[in-house]
């Protein structure tokens, strides 16, 4: 299954040719109505969200948006959200809960934006509130890490009943570059960091961090979007059907217990479970 090294996977996960949130929305949903703004002070295009139909059923869909060309990249801040983005996500999630809609999120971000205004407006608070809100939602939630899942900025959209990853996506506590520069004071050792961080979908599945790995076409999702869409569509259909068996409070409980167990009962140091 792992034809690529962790370092190669990081490159693939960041490939601008991979389908992004807007592509998944266009392909898998109909009737998408984009919702904008946090109702407090701004609109952050680096998080895209709204209401849509998934196989006829209204759902709330939210994801990171990196942009397709340089102009859009800049507008979307390369998928690095500001507090407004997270507060918009919170607003959409509350509404989803109010109207009993499942929440589907697409995770693809280098991380939350480390900028001056973002700090001024409470980046930490915005992420914290999103985590808390998402953890307690009484509707089914599914997160799919489609590209790079970077740090708290990614996690904020991924406290879901099911967290799935595309086969070559990565998900980590920090970018390998940041990791290497913090631990070894040397960002050029990022390649080495990829090796020790256990950031591939396969490693995370083994570690109990994600609940499913979605097969990508031959060389990766960027070479055959249609195949990637079919896989994600099937996975969402399957997981939604499974989650529909749980009632509101049971959904919140299942999610709580799942995240509660992460880091508890880990395989003993120095050994890795197959």
């Amino acid at each position: 299954m792992s034809r690529y090294t962790p370092e190669e996977k990081v490159k693939i996960a960041r490939d601008p040719g991979r389908p992004g949130t807007s592509d998944f929305i266009a392909a898998l949903f109909i009737d998408f109505f984009e919702q904008r703004g946090d109702r407090l002070c701004g609109e952050d295009p680096s998080i895209l969200g709204g209401i849509a139909r998934f196989h006829g059923r209204p759902v709330t869909v939210i994801g990171h948006r990196k942009g397709k060309d340089l102009e859009e990249n800049l507008r979307c801040n390369f998928g690095m959200p500001s507090p407004e983005g997270y507060r918009k996500a919170q607003r959409l999630m509350r509404q989803a809960e109010k109207f009993g809609r499942p929440v589907i999120t697409f995770v693809d971000t280098p991380g939350a934006y480390p900028g001056k205004e973002a700090e001024e407006r409470g980046q930490g608070e915005a992420i914290a509130q999103t985590l808390a809100l998402m953890s307690a939602l009484e509707v089914p939630t599914i997160a799919i890490v489609t590209g790079e899942g970077g740090s708290g900025g990614a996690l904020a959209l991924a406290v879901a009943n099911r967290v799935l990853m595309l086969e070559h996506a990565v998900y980590s506590v920090l970018s390998p570059e940041g990791f290497a520069s913090i631990l070894w004071k040397d960002a050029s050792r990022a390649g080495e960091a990829c090796g020790v961080m256990k950031l591939t979908a396969q490693d995370l599945r083994r570690g109990g961090i994600v609940q499913g790995v979605l097969r990508e076409p031959e060389e990766g999702a960027h070479t055959n979007w249609e195949a990637a869409f079919r896989t994600v569509d099937a996975a969402l259909t399957h997981e939604l059907a499974a989650l529909d068996k749980l009632k509101g409070p049971a959904l919140a409980r299942q999610r709580y217990e799942m995240f509660r167990a992460m880091g508890q009962g880990l395989p003993p140091a120095g050994r890795e479970e197959p």
């Binding site: 985590l131 708290g152 961090i209 995240f259 992460m262 880091g263």
Partner: peptide, 13 residues
């Protein structure tokens, strides 16, 4: 690593 990141979700919850 990632286990540390998940503590954010766990403690917030």
């Amino acid at each position: 690593g990632i286990f540390s990141l998940m503590q954010m979700a766990k403690t917030a919850a």
